[in-house]
């Protein structure tokens, strides 16, 4: 049949689209039907099953910060996924762990309310999937104003138009503090505000 497709344009169209739809539908429509963790928000009350906690909807302030995160293209340098790799979970090296506690691995049910996926493809700056609660507002303000004041050697751009705008700064910090907090992963609850 395929040998006739170089003479019959209509047959060509049917076969080319048919093959495309087989793979296309099986890899995009089928998975969310089979794997409910894609749509069911994270909730766990049983410490024996890993970190406890519950994923909740964004507040209007957090949502505003989320939109700033998208507007500034933050995801082009920061991933938001703690992968199943030592490099990602560790608290001693370049991972998302913090102060002696390794970060729990990211799962699909932690991202159910994300109107724009922020997993990212490039980690020019550190991963932010567990950044919530690591730094307080004051730290973020100084850091957005000039990242090199706090992290010598950083190549992050300065964001004075956010640092000097209290509304935007509050919103963005509120959003950042949600990252990774659905899972209550710090045993001492030592989260910054």
């Amino acid at each position: 049949m395929l040998s006739k497709t170089d003479k019959n344009a209509t047959l060509f169209i049917v076969v080319a689209l048919g093959l495309f739809f087989i793979g296309g539908l099986l890899t995009t429509v089928l998975p969310p039907l089979l794997d409910k963790s894609w749509s069911k928000p994270f909730e766990n009350n049983d410490p024996s099953k890993g970190p406890t906690g519950k994923l909740v909807q964004y507040t209007p302030l957090q949502q505003k910060g989320y939109e700033i995160y998208i507007r500034e293209g933050c995801k082009y340098c920061h991933t938001q996924q703690t992968r199943t790799l030592l490099s990602d979970v560790t608290s001693k090296g370049a991972g998302s762990g913090w102060k002696g506690v390794d970060a729990p691995v990211s799962t699909p049910d932690e991202f159910v309310y994300d109107y724009r996926q922020t997993f990212g493809t490039k980690r020019t700056g550190p991963d932010l999937s567990r950044v919530g609660g690591k730094y307080n507002r004051q730290w973020h303000k100084a850091h957005f104003n000039n990242p090199r004041d706090l992290v010598p050697g950083s190549i992050m751009p300065p964001f004075p138009w956010i640092a000097n705008n209290p509304d935007e700064l509050d919103a963005l910090v509120a959003y950042l503090q949600t990252r990774g907090r659905a899972k209550n992963w710090r045993p001492d609850n030592d989260y910054e505000q």
């Binding site: 076969v15 080319a16 093959l19 495309f20 087989i22 793979g23 296309g24 099986l26 890899t27 995009t28 998975p31 089979l34 794997d35 963790s37 894609w38 996924q81 992968r83 199943t84 790799l85 990602d88 691995v105 990211s106 799962t107 699909p108 932690e110 991202f111 997993f119 493809t121």
Partner: peptide, 18 residues
């Protein structure tokens, strides 16, 4: 035509996807 469309999830290897 047959093979290419199946590969999208390789951008999320080790990540939070089935």
């Amino acid at each position: 035509a047959f093979v290419y469309v199946w590969t999208g999830a390789h951008h999320m290897l080790h990540g939070p996807i089935t």
